[in-house]
Design a protein around this nucleic acid. Structure first.
Lengths: 141, 141
DNA sequence: TCTACGGCCTCTAGCGACTAGAGGGGCAAG
DNA sequence: CTTGCCCCTCTAGTCGCTAGAGGCCGTAGA
């Protein structure tokens, strides 16, 4: 117990300002304070912050992490909700992969057609200037 | 000629506030104005905005688009720079695809292990709580 | 004793690429 | 005369942080 924010940072692999930010947005609880008003944490906070970091690394959004944290606090609850959140996120990831793969294809084609001549005949520029393409809404990466 | 911002928006497939934003950040030029101070555009602006939209759909960042626009204005220049920008961008896209594919793999494994029991035994929660994983820096999508 | 260092504190602003909203003007049709 | 539509400017919000200013506190070395 009685861990400073710096040590929590080292133990969970999350930067100090990020921890304070998580506190601000309610992902981390308001910690107790030392006499000099410094934050003090314990093992539960280390675990919680590790959970958050790992979920962020897997690309879960903060709202989803909030849900997952709430769900994980009740071990008796059936884990259908957890599963649903994870599947929803995976569907998002797969969508982004499809989108990026399509982009890569078009970029590859475009670059392959560039004959290294002058900009006036450059296929890259011409492709970009051609208004007939439409890839639906602007990309979300 | 003498196209309103609304018609430019329709012709290029870019929302009106976005056009004004592009003007603000210097991607689109300051247009001439009607007597009532409304923006008036011509064909060159339609082409330029289409170029921008298409490049954005391909995921180019605004700085890269600025460069591409500058390069495309000189047809005599050899297009090595254009090619370099496009290749750099494609390398970025490929990096993101690799990252997301790795994430998908881990999500799939995690979800596959969930026995649909209670949260207490849920593999999804356990995997997230396990601090031993480290995927390097937090994901950039 | 002075001073440098490191860690902690709060608060504010910035990133990219928009999007949303407030609050208003002007013009044509019904 | 009112309704609706298009246009204007300006400000603030999105997401998940990150960077910086400015300051406190305690210790260790010269």
């Amino acid at each position: 117990m009685d861990i400073s924010i710096g040590e929590l940072s080292r133990r969970a692999g999350v930067k100090v300002p990020t921890i304070r930010y998580y506190e601000q947005v309610g992902l981390m609880p308001l910690p107790s304070r030392s006499e000099a008003q410094q934050r003090r944490y314990g093992e539960p906070e280390v675990a919680r912050l590790n959970f958050i970091r790992h979920a962020r690394e897997l690309g879960f959004e903060m709202d989803a992490i909030r849900e997952l944290l709430a769900l994980s606090s009740d071990p008796e609850r059936p884990c259908g909700d957890v599963d649903r959140i994870a599947r929803r996120h995976m569907a998002e990831v797969e969508k982004r992969i499809r989108k990026l793969t399509a982009l890569r294809g078009e970029l590859r084609r475009m670059i392959g057609e560039c004959g290294q001549g002058r900009v006036g005949e450059c296929r890259v520029i011409q492709t970009l200037a051609d208004p007939s393409h439409d890839h639906g809404r602007l990309a979300d990466h």
